[in-house]
Every structure is written in C-alpha cells, then in structure tokens.
Amino acid sequence: MDMQSSLKIVSGDILSRFLDKVSDDPRICIAHLGLFAVLLKKWSEQGGEETLKIFAAQAMVYAKISSSNTYHRLIRELNEYGYLVYEPSFYKRKASLIRFIMD
C-alpha cells in the first residue's frame, strides 16, 4: 500500500471517530465540523505527520470562515472539548500547531 492510500485510510478513521464522538455532543455545530474536516485535509496534504502546521488564514479560506474571531473561538473550543490539541503561535510568520487526538 502506498503512502497516499495509507493517509486516506488514517484520515478516514480519524474523521469517523470524530463524527462518532460529536454525534452526542450538543456543543458542536456545523462550523466545528467544517473546520475539523479542513484541518484533517491539510494534515493529509502535509504528509500526515504527527503535528499539522497551519496558519489561520489557510484554514479560514477552506472552511468558509470570514472572521478570525470565529476561527479562533472554534479552534479553541475543539481544543477545550478534547477533539484536538491546539498550540497557537501568536506570531504572524510562524504557523500554529495542531495534533489530532486519536483515541
């Protein structure tokens, strides 16, 4: 099996587990789902390494989020709710770090 096929299987598994978990979580809205899907896509594009490096503007475009306040609220909530680990960089030229929780 090639690397790309393996990444598709792993990302599909992460997405499936995420959707199973959020189905019973009333705090999660469609915007959280869209952002999580975009982050997973970007993670796969970067080769599926342990940590995703991403700038807010990159994710916002794909997730159709126009406000940076909304983006930061959603990503912080996904972190607080235990769906991913978010390490903001606080520097414009340095990407934030995101790790998916795979349990």
Rank of each mutant, 00 (worst) to 15 (best):
F18W: 03
Q46C: 12
S5T: 15
S67Q: 09
L39S: 06
G47K: 04
K64F: 11
F18G: 00
I101K: 09
Y83F: 08
L7W: 03
Y71S: 07
M1G: 08
K92F: 02
M102P: 04
M102T: 15
L19D: 05
D2Y: 11
D103P: 14
N79S: 15
Y86L: 05
V38I: 11
S23N: 09
I101L: 13
A59P: 03
V85T: 10
L33M: 13
S89A: 12
I101D: 04
I54L: 08
S5N: 12
T70G: 10
V22P: 03
S11E: 01
A56S: 08
E49V: 14
F36I: 07
L7H: 01
L7Y: 02
A95F: 03
S96C: 05
M1H: 04
L15G: 01
V10G: 00
L39W: 01
Y86F: 13
F100H: 03
W43F: 05
P88W: 02
Q58P: 07
I98F: 00
Y71D: 05
V38S: 05
L97H: 06
Y81M: 12
T70E: 05
W43L: 04
M60G: 07
K42I: 09
W43C: 04
D25Q: 07
Y86T: 06
I30N: 12
I14A: 03
R17G: 05
R99C: 00
S16G: 07
Y91A: 09
N79I: 08
